[in-house]
Structures are given as C-alpha cells and as structure tokens.
Design a protein around this nucleic acid. Structure first.
Lengths: 233, 233
DNA sequence: CAGAATAATATGTGTGCACATAAAAACATT
DNA sequence: AATGTTTTTATGTGCACACATATTATTCTG
C-alpha cells in the first residue's frame, strides 16, 4: 500500500475534505492533531495548519486550542455574496446601464432612519432617491440617507450624473456595516417608479455603513421583480 | 518621531486598513511590497504576507504576482451569510421550534426541477413539503426534491419528526452548491399554509446542492413576511 | 521594428523551529 | 465534594530561509 505525500496545503485540504466526505471522519468527530497529520501526510505542520485553518474558515471544521479539531457537526453553509456597485452589476450582465436621479433634498428624516443611524432626531440628513436602469428598463430603486456631518463633500455633490451608490464608494470610507435582505411589497410609489403592478414582491437590501461610531449612510435598494441574488457554496 | 513596531499580523492588517481609510493609500494605488513593509513594520515578511492576504480575501486589496499589491479601486462589499439549519435559526431567536410535514411522495418532477437537477426527465424524485414553525406560528415553507439515486437512505426516511432540512445535513454530504435569493409573491396555496394574505411578498432561498456531478437536492424555502436575512460587513 | 528569448521581481508557499495561548485534565487543598 | 492551582497539550503565530511561479521589463535576434 502506497502512502502518497501531500506537498502543498491545497492538496492536504482536498484530502481532508475527501475523508470528511467519505465519512472516514464523521460530523462531530475529533480528527488527529496537526503534528500527527503532518507526519502522515509527509509535510510540515504549518502546511497542515494552513489547510485546516482554511477549512475552519469555510465552516467545515471547528477548531479549539487544546480541545483539538473536529468535523463541524452542524455545517452551516457559508455563502459569500459580492455586493458590487449597481452599475457594474448591470454591465456584467451585458446590459446598458442607466441612471435617473429622482430626488435630492436635505431634510429631517423619520425617526426610524435617525434611530437606525443614531443621529440626533432633529438633525437634517441628505436624502437621495434614484432609479437604476438596465437597458432602459427599471432595475432598482435606491433610497438613501447620507450623514453629511460625516461625509461633508456630499453637500456639494448633485448626484445627477453619478449615483450615490457609486460616489460614496469612492468618497466615503467605512469601517463596518450591517446588511439585511428581505422581501417587501411595492408601495404605490415604488410600483410606479419601477413600472410594475402595485403589491409586487420586491427584493430589498438594507444597508447601514459606519465609520467607527458614526453612521455614514443608510440605503434601501428595491429591485424590480425577477431579480435574484446568486452565489455558490 | 517614533516608529511603532507591529508584532503580529492583525496589527499589521489594522495599520494597512488605517492607511487606506486615511487615504494615505488611495483606491487603485500600488502599495509598497511585502519586503519593504516588513522592514518598515519591524516584522517578518510572512507576517506582512498574512495580513495582506487576509485583506485581499476580504476584497480590500488586489494582489498579483510581480505586479504588486494595490488598494481595490472598486471595493466590493463581501458579505458572508451563515445559512444554518432552520431549527437552529429559530431557537437562536429564543423561539420554540415546531415542524409539520405536509407531503412526502415519490414522483416525476416538473421539467424545471429535473432540468435544474440534471436528472433524467422521467426519473422519479422524492418530493417533500413541510412547514417550519416558530412559537407555533408559520415560519417557513420548505419545498424540496431529493435525488434518491444519490441519497438512497432517504427512501426509508419518513421526514415526520425530523425535517429534510436537518436530516440531509447529517446524511447527505455535498461538494458544492448554488444558492439564490429572491422575492416572490405567495401563491394561494403558500399563503394558506403560511396564514398570510395571498400575493404577500415572501423571501425565497433556492438552493441546489451537488455531490460532484450528481445533484443531491433542490430546495425552495419560502419565509413568512417579516423575515430578514442579516449579516455584517 | 516585431517577435522571441531572457532576466528581474513581487507574491505564493514550504520547512523547521520556537514560543504564546487557551483550555482541558490532573492534582492539591480546604 | 467543591474549589483553586498546576500541568499538559493542541492550536496559533512569529521568524528566517529557500524556492516556486506568474508576470513584467529588458535584451536579443531576424
């Protein structure tokens, strides 16, 4: 019986994947430690470490110091979504991108917005509403509030030619954010803007981004019916 | 002027993040190479490598051999979703989980299903329809097709007590899968099952999983209105 | 001058070693 | 038996070095 050697971390990862898949190591099982695997695989421990770390990142393994490494009992599917600038998303589909500014105004937002953005209730924010088009057909509504106390330069930007979606990417760095995906019924106004029947089911992405403790912007993107956010796992 | 040293890869990553954030390195800029940064930071090149690799994985940097490392011009927000077993999702919310099997039958699926699963058009698949409950209220409809040629043991499983969602996790390993998120209008039947008005907007997750070239299962999960899939970026 | 061969270079990764750190396990103490 | 302390151990990480590999820049050649 020959014992093949695994000289790089990718091949080690594949072999571990294979063993889990073949139920040689069942969910919940403790697997041999790094040093032993290194000997078995004929490589350095750091190589095994790299492979196991990668598998832990993708949720296949659970690792704990001293406790060891075990096959995840409850393998959560970890899907990574790439949320790009809408223009790029449209152009990647081979469609022609279009953009229409609907509204731009500084105003005091409803409490739900100032609450989520943790701004003073009476503070004015910049409100931008726009429509993104793919091949001249409505693609998504962007409804956004911008904290001009944080993004000063937004005050002097009209958002007539370039969308806030894209402009902010370049001009407003953020440290972290929250994102939520849901389904909502189109309001009368949304339905009109998108040219769809009222009550249509729309895919919604809600995102708030933060620069440390200050909110930068809060946006709701409402996609026309038929939109699907896809990824591989 | 003191030059602080960065002894671990996380602190190097933070410093690089800070420089990008402070626009010391602007989007599109080429940053110094690993060796130079290692000297500047007073650490080994491998430590810098670890930090930069981590940032590249999260989409902040673009790296190419010989060409060097540059700040991503178009930083895509990379959101990682953890799609857990529904029972766990419900219980994590502090609610009591419930499960109701609606239907279980072996039948020839519609062409859309056999097409997506790449099974023979005439081949029978196991169809399971079930309702997941949170605190006795409808939470999500699971509509699933299982390829029993791949998951033999599913034939003898009734799915009366344990959901296919959960059972398959333990019994049907997969190598990869596709996943899609969308918004759909509730059909009359869906609306009845969920106890919501017809035409309600439902959040849908469609997933097909594969074991190498064979499809394992295809599922559509329809969540009751109000559901939101959240994550941080 | 175009195209092919060659050199240069930045990242990618393997190795061996050392030590840090978290957490379980063993042990001691009350 | 409950509690606190020490030991043990598996993973986490840093370092120095070497070589691999992809890609660009340069030089050579017809």
């Amino acid at each position: 019986m020959n014992t093949p050697t695994f000289r790089n971390w990718q091949s080690v990862r594949e072999e571990v994947r294979r063993r889990i898949h073949a139920r040689e190591w069942a969910p919940g099982d403790l697997i041999p430690n790094e040093a032993d695997l290194a000997v078995e695989f004929g490589c350095a421990r750091s190589t095994v470490n790299r492979a196991l770390r990668s598998l832990a990142e993708s949720g296949v393994l659970d690792r704990k110091r001293k406790a060891g490494t075990r096959v995840a009992a409850q393998p959560v599917a970890r899907a990574t979504l790439n949320i790009a600038v809408i223009r790029h998303e449209v152009e990647e589909h081979g469609a022609t991108y279009g953009y229409l500014l609907i509204e731009r105004a500084e105003r005091v937002p409803p409490a739900s917005i100032s609450g989520a953005m943790k701004t003073r209730a009476a503070a004015k924010l910049l409100h931008v509403r726009a429509l993104h088009l793919a091949d001249d057909a409505p693609y998504a509504i962007e409804d956004r509030w911008i904290n001009t106390d944080v993004v000063h330069s937004a005050r002097s930007e009209g958002f007539e030619a370039v969308s806030a979606n894209e402009w902010l990417m370049k001009h407003a760095p953020y440290t972290h954010g929250d994102i939520g995906f849901s389904a909502v019924q189109a309001t009368v106004s949304d339905a009109e803007t998108l040219g769809v029947p009222p009550q249509s089911a729309l895919f919604a992405i809600d995102r708030v981004t933060w620069d440390n403790a200050s909110s930068v912007t809060k946006v709701r993107l409402l996609f026309a019916p038929g939109y699907q956010l896809r990824t591989a796992i």
